[in-house]
C-alpha cells in the first residue's frame, strides 16, 4: 500500500541540438551582452544551438527517446505534462522569426492563439489516451512543477500509473544568450514519473514564488540579490521537511547556472564542491528548464549515484520562482 502512494522518476532522456558554439563564437557573432571573459570565468565554455529544430521538435525527440529506452508500456502513460519555461515555448513558434504553425509572437490570426504544442506532442507520440496539461510561467522551474504535479496526481488518482513530463525550450534566434551572467543553451528533456517506483523516489518538493520580483528586466539586480538568501532558505526548509540534513545528501543535482554561483551557494548550504555535480555547466550551459533532469541522467550514467542515495535538485526560474526537490535513488 505504501509503495502505491509513492512515485519515482523512472527514466530520463534528453535532446540537445548537435550544433555547438563556444563562448568566443557567441561573442564574435554578437550573441552576448556581457564579456566572454566573465562567462568563461564563471565556468561556461560551450552551448548547444538549435537550427531548424523547433521547441516541439526537440520535445518530441526527447519524449520518443524516453519511451523507447524505458520499460514503461505506452498504454500506461495516463497524462502528459508539458513544461515550458519561455512563453514562446507554449506556442508553435519556430524560434527563427517565422511562424509556420502560428505564433503569439507573430500573430497571423486569433485561432493561432489556440494552437498548443502539448497537443501536438500527444498526437506525434501516439498517446491518444494521455490527456495533456501545459505548465508554464515558472521559467526554469517549470519542470519541477511538472514533476511535483505528476507525483501529486499519481498519489491522488488511483488509476494513474505513469505521467510523461517534458520540457523543451529554444531561445529566440539572434538574441543575447547571456541572462543574469548565465549562458543559455537550447535543449529538451523528458521523463516518466511512475507509480510505486523506488528508483528516484520523489521524497519532497518545495517552491517559493516571489511575485514582487516578476519583472526580470526592470529589477534584475533585486532578483540577483534575492537569489542566494531565498535559495538557502528553501533548501534548508526542504531538508527539514524531509527530515534530512545536508550531510545526508549524496549529491546535489544543480541547474546549469554559473559555476561561481554554485561555489557560493555550496558554501551557504554547507555542501562541499565535490558533492555538487557541476560538470555540465561548461559543456552544456543552461538549458533553461531541462538542466536538472539532464544532469540526473548523466550523473547516474557516470556511476556517481548509488541505490538509496538521497539527491537534492534545485533550480531558479524567473517569475521569480525557487524550486527544490529531494529524491532517493
Amino acid at each position: 500500500m505504501r509503495a502505491q502512494s509513492t512515485a519515482g522518476i523512472h527514466s530520463i532522456a534528453e535532446y540537445l541540438p548537435p550544433r555547438v558554439a563556444s563562448v568566443r563564437e557567441l561573442h564574435d557573432r554578437g550573441l552576448l551582452r556581457g564579456s566572454p571573459e566573465t562567462l568563461t570565468s564563471f565556468g561556461f565554455d560551450t552551448v548547444h544551438l538549435a537550427g531548424e529544430e523547433t521547441n516541439i521538435d526537440m520535445a518530441i525527440a526527447a519524449a520518443e527517446r524516453v519511451l523507447e529506452e524505458s520499460d514503461v508500456d505506452r498504454n500506461d502513460i495516463g497524462m502528459i505534462l508539458y513544461a515550458a519555461a519561455l512563453s514562446s515555448s507554449s506556442t508553435l513558434w519556430d524560434g527563427n522569426g517565422g511562424s509556420p504553425h502560428g505564433s503569439v509572437l507573430q500573430l497571423d490570426s486569433v485561432p493561432d492563439l489556440f494552437k498548443y504544442p502539448a497537443s501536438v506532442l500527444q498526437t506525434e507520440l501516439g498517446l491518444p489516451n494521455a490527456p495533456v496539461v501545459g505548465i508554464n510561467q515558472l521559467g526554469c522551474a517549470s519542470i519541477f512543477a511538472a514533476l511535483r504535479m505528476a507525483r501529486a496526481l499519481i498519489v491522488a488518482e488511483g488509476e494513474l500509473r505513469a505521467v510523461l513530463c517534458v520540457s523543451s525550450d529554444k531561445f529566440p534566434a539572434g538574441r543575447h544568450r547571456d541572462l543574469a551572467y548565465n549562458l543559455v543553451s537550447d535543449g529538451a528533456c523528458a521523463t516518466i514519473v511512475r507509480r510505486g517506483d523506488r528508483i528516484n523516489r520523489i521524497v519532497e518538493c518545495t517552491q517559493i514564488t516571489k511575485g514582487a520580483l516578476w519583472d526580470s528586466e526592470a529589477i534584475e539586480n533585486e532578483i540577483i540579490a534575492a537569489y542566494f538568501p531565498t535559495a538557502t532558505a528553501l533548501i534548508e526548509r526542504t531538508l527539514a521537511k524531509a527530515g534530512l540534513e545536508m550531510d545526508d545528501i549524496s549529491l546535489v543535482i544543480p541547474h546549469n547556472v554559473s559555476l561561481r554561483s554554485w561555489e557560493i551557494l555550496g558554501r551557504l548550504i554547507k555542501c562541499p564542491p565535490e558533492r555538487i555535480y557541476t560538470e555540465n555547466i561548461a559543456r552544456v550551459g543552461h538549458t533553461i528548464a531541462s538542466d536538472n533532469l539532464l544532469n540526473l541522467r548523466r550523473a547516474t550514467e557516470a556511476g556517481m549515484i548509488e541505490k538509496g542515495d538521497y539527491l537534492l535538485l534545485f533550480t531558479f526560474g524567473y517569475g521569480s520562482n525557487w524550486a527544490c526537490m529531494i529524491v532517493q535513488h
Binding site: 570565468s41 564563471f42 551572467y181 511575485g211 514582487a212 542566494f228 561561481r260 558554501r267
Partner: peptide, 24 residues
C-alpha cells in the same frame, strides 16, 4: 518579500564580492 540577508563567513562574502566585481 525581501529575504533577510544571510550572515556568512568572510571567505564566502569575499567570493561574492569578487563575483559581483567581475560582472561589472
Amino acid at each position: 518579500a525581501v529575504e533577510r540577508p544571510l550572515i556568512v563567513d568572510l571567505d564566502t562574502y569575499e567570493l561574492f564580492v569578487r563575483s559581483v566585481e567581475e560582472t561589472g
